[in-house]
């Protein structure tokens, strides 16, 4: 880590930001695994809990925003400090979005009314969620350790998620064609998969931010892209 500032209070400000980002990350991880559990077991209570915990993430994100603005005004940060502060702001935005996506999955659990259950589809969804959770865990770890190489490897590990999403998409299509009564639930599951995939996109954003924070350079745009489903997202909340 970098040496301490001449102004001790500045170090305290930066540590605060790091601590809040870490707390947000912990909540987001919990939200994801709970949302997937709730989906798997059709557990409405757990789903409610996921929805409720989103308020805490939102609060923390606002707290980061306020602290960032104050710190910029007070300290006029430069170089690594500026990158740290901008980084905390960006990462907190991504984590807040990840929390929203987990909440969306939880809301769908409450909306599920069919008894349809396919082990294969559920395993696929779970597998995707595991991959994304691992990405999020690794990227948060790269943030804590300020490890650009680790961030880079998360950034490159996106294909797995896209591949599972593609096969899940095809599978769900088959179920829908087999029996129109499956359509409603399959659409819900499709959106859940899409939500998980978008969490992965936020994990890659975070990886880019960590890399920039540490190295002072942007990563290029040539990320491997495997998503061929090209679904149009319709906001669930609408």
């Amino acid at each position: 880590m970098v040496a301490e500032h001449t102004m001790k209070a500045f170090d305290a400000d930066l540590q605060d930001l790091g601590r809040i980002v870490a707390e947000m990350g912990g909540i987001a991880e919990q939200q994801i695994s709970d949302a997937i559990d709730a989906l798997d077991r059709r557990d409405a209570m757990l789903a409610q809990q996921v929805i409720a915990s989103d308020a805490r993430i939102d609060t923390l994100q606002r707290e980061i925003e306020e602290k960032v603005i104050l710190t910029i005004a007070r300290r006029q940060p430069m170089a690594v400090d500026l990158r740290e502060i901008v980084g905390a702001l960006r990462i907190s935005n991504d984590l807040e979005r990840i929390g929203d996506l987990a909440k969306n999955i939880a809301k769908r659990v409450l909306a599920l009314d069919s008894e349809f259950k396919s082990q294969r589809v559920m395993r696929g969804v779970e597998h995707m969620a595991e991959l994304v959770l691992a990405q999020i865990k690794d990227v948060l770890d790269s943030y804590t350790k300020r490890d650009a190489q680790k961030a880079l490897s998360v950034w490159r590990s996106d294909e797995g998620v896209d591949a599972v999403n593609n096969s899940l998409f095809r599978e769900l299509l088959t179920y829908m064609m087999e029996d129109p009564r499956n359509i409603s639930i399959c659409i819900h599951l499709l959106f859940c998969a899409k939500n998980i995939e978008r969490m992965g996109d936020h994990a890659t954003n975070i990886a880019e931010t960590v890399y920039y924070m540490v190295e002072g350079r942007m990563l290029g745009d040539e990320r491997p892209k495997g998503d061929k489903t090209s679904m149009t997202m319709v906001p669930f909340d609408a």
Binding site: V2, A3, E4, H5, M7, P77, M78, A79, L82, G216
Partner: peptide
């Protein structure tokens, strides 16, 4: 220089880390 200086001494100075 002010966002991503290359030398540690520059970084320390512009971020206020010289004691």
């Amino acid at each position: 220089i002010f966002t991503a200086p290359k030398d540690q001494r520059t970084q320390d100075y512009i971020t206020g880390r010289f004691g």
